[in-house]
Amino acid sequence: MARRDHFHVLIVCSQQSGMQAACRVFEHQTDSKFERVHTDLPYSLCLCRKWNGLPLTIAMVAQVKSGGTETMKLVADLANYFTVGMIAMTGICAGEEDKYNEIEYGTVVVANRTTTESGGLEKADSKFESHARYKEVDKQILPAINELVAVKGSLSMDCIPSQSYRPSPRYVKELLLKSVLDSGGIKMEDLVATIESKLPGIEILALNEVLDKIMNDSKPWISTEDKLLKATDEGKVYANDQSSFPCGDHDVIAAVSASIGSVLTEVNNLDKEMETLKQRMEDRDIKAIDREAHFFMEQATDSFSPGLPIVMKGISDYGTEPSKLSYYRVHAASTSAAFLRHFVAQKNFLISK
């Protein structure tokens, strides 16, 4: 089959919202525009030629459905029509917050390796015999990834357009708790108004979503007493234990080079399951879990050789229901797209023509 087009960079997103976020990031502070192309194909494909004045053709596509199987189908089908210099996946993932390693919500995990479990066996002694599959990032681009990740603070939050920026869930939770503690007891509407004044532009729905999470958590920080919101003992302990409270968000995007593990179904208790997943996938360097990364790397390597495959995803939650906040997902998808844009701008000489 004759190829229709060649893309220097093809970005694959598991969700339409992720592609929209990536599009806004790549258009931000440029005169570049992405337009819908190849409209006869059964998925949304957008394209920009000479992106940001560079001799680069960049395309983006979104899966119709999320998940590893759908990723493999889409990537295999794209290879029937297009050739690429680099094929990348951006979007969101679940991950552990780890202040010692400077990992929190919004941090970008750039995959130096992807992995997935592959038919492990439960042995008679109740121990698990792991079987796993791996894909290492191409050796041509690994040094460039590590170089960019190592330069802390080089990627300003300004590279995310204002309509996609969101304050982190941790910061919003701490502001809510601080306001309740300072008041000794506050009405819901007064609390929301207080936080709106501190975070101009934040949606009321987002505040209500975060407040609902911390009031209904297994160890809530805030509870209702005599029609007022008051801090619980758990909330008071948290506030007293912090070296800085509330601690504002960083004005730069953080990134780490690590493994991303992929599972077939969503993990709803990552805080309890991460160690087991690392064991079953035989990889202690896993910093993020998603449903697509490894399946993307496998299929992209097979279908687009010699096009370089790469994955980077922003941590949007902890993989547990209490941590999942819809308002923050666009921001996390945007941080991963911003790091990819940074990589393309700085290291485009690595992308084959």
Results as ranks from 00 to 15, higher is better:
Val25Trp: 00
Thr69Asn: 15
Ser130Ala: 15
Pro200Val: 02
Leu54Cys: 06
Lys287Ile: 02
Glu273Tyr: 11
Asp212Met: 11
Gly119Ile: 00
Asp5Leu: 13
Val25Ile: 06
Gly185Cys: 07
Ser323Cys: 04
Leu56Glu: 00
Leu199Cys: 06
Gly184Pro: 15
Lys198Ser: 02
Thr69Met: 12
Cys23Pro: 01
Gly307Ile: 08
Arg329Ile: 12
Cys159Pro: 07
Glu147Gly: 10
Leu229Met: 08
Asp217Gly: 11
Thr30Lys: 09
Lys152Ile: 08
Thr114Asp: 00
Leu228Asn: 13
Lys152Ala: 10
Asn101Ile: 01
Ala206His: 02
Leu47His: 08
Glu136Phe: 14
Asn101Asp: 05
Arg280Pro: 12
Ile11Leu: 02
Ile289Leu: 06
Asp77Trp: 11
Cys159Gly: 12
Pro169Lys: 03
Asp217Glu: 14
Ala231Leu: 06
Val263His: 15
Ile186Arg: 12
Asn101Thr: 08
Val84Lys: 11
Lys99Pro: 11
Cys93Gly: 06
Glu275Ile: 13
Tyr165Gln: 11
Ser154Gln: 13
Ser130His: 14
Gly67Ala: 05
Ala231Asp: 07
Pro169Ser: 10
Ile204Arg: 08
Leu175Thr: 00
Asn101Lys: 06
Pro167Asp: 00
Asp251Gln: 01
Lys135Ala: 08
Cys46Met: 07
Ser130Asn: 15
Tyr318Phe: 11
Ser162Gly: 07
Leu207Gln: 04
Gly235Ser: 02
Ile141Glu: 13
Val172Gly: 05
Gly53Leu: 03
Ala193Tyr: 05
Lys127Phe: 15
Thr194Trp: 08
Val75Phe: 08
Met188Pro: 09
Ser183His: 11
Asp283Val: 15
Thr320Asp: 04
Ile58His: 05
Thr265Gly: 06
Ala59Ser: 04
Glu102His: 04
Val61Cys: 12
Asp271Thr: 13
Asp233Thr: 04
Gly67Gln: 03
Lys287Pro: 04
Gly91Lys: 11
Asp31Ile: 11
Pro322Glu: 06
Ala59Thr: 03
Val108Ala: 02
Ile260Phe: 05
Thr301Ala: 04
Phe7Asp: 10
Ile141Lys: 09
Ala332Met: 07
Tyr81Ile: 14
Ile214Asp: 05
Ala300Tyr: 03
Ser259Asn: 12
Glu234Tyr: 12
Asp283Trp: 14
Gly68Trp: 10
Cys247Pro: 00
His342Val: 00
Leu181Thr: 10
Gly314Ile: 04
Ser130Arg: 15
Phe304Met: 07
Ala206Glu: 00
Lys347Met: 01
Asp31Gln: 07
Arg113Leu: 01
Arg170Leu: 04
Gln63Leu: 13
Leu78Gln: 10
Lys65Asp: 14
Asp285Ala: 13
Lys213Val: 05
Glu282Gln: 13
Ala94Arg: 12
Val330Asp: 15
Asp251Ala: 03
Asp5Trp: 15
Glu292Leu: 13
Tyr105Lys: 00
Met157Cys: 06
Asp31Gly: 07
Glu35Leu: 15
Met19Ala: 04
Ile289Tyr: 12
Lys173Leu: 01
Val210Arg: 08
Ala345Lys: 07
Cys247Met: 06
Leu228Cys: 09
His6Phe: 09
Pro169Ala: 07
Tyr238Asp: 03
Asp212Val: 14
Asp31Pro: 03
Phe82Leu: 13
Pro309Asp: 02
Thr69Val: 11
Met312Tyr: 02
Phe295Lys: 14
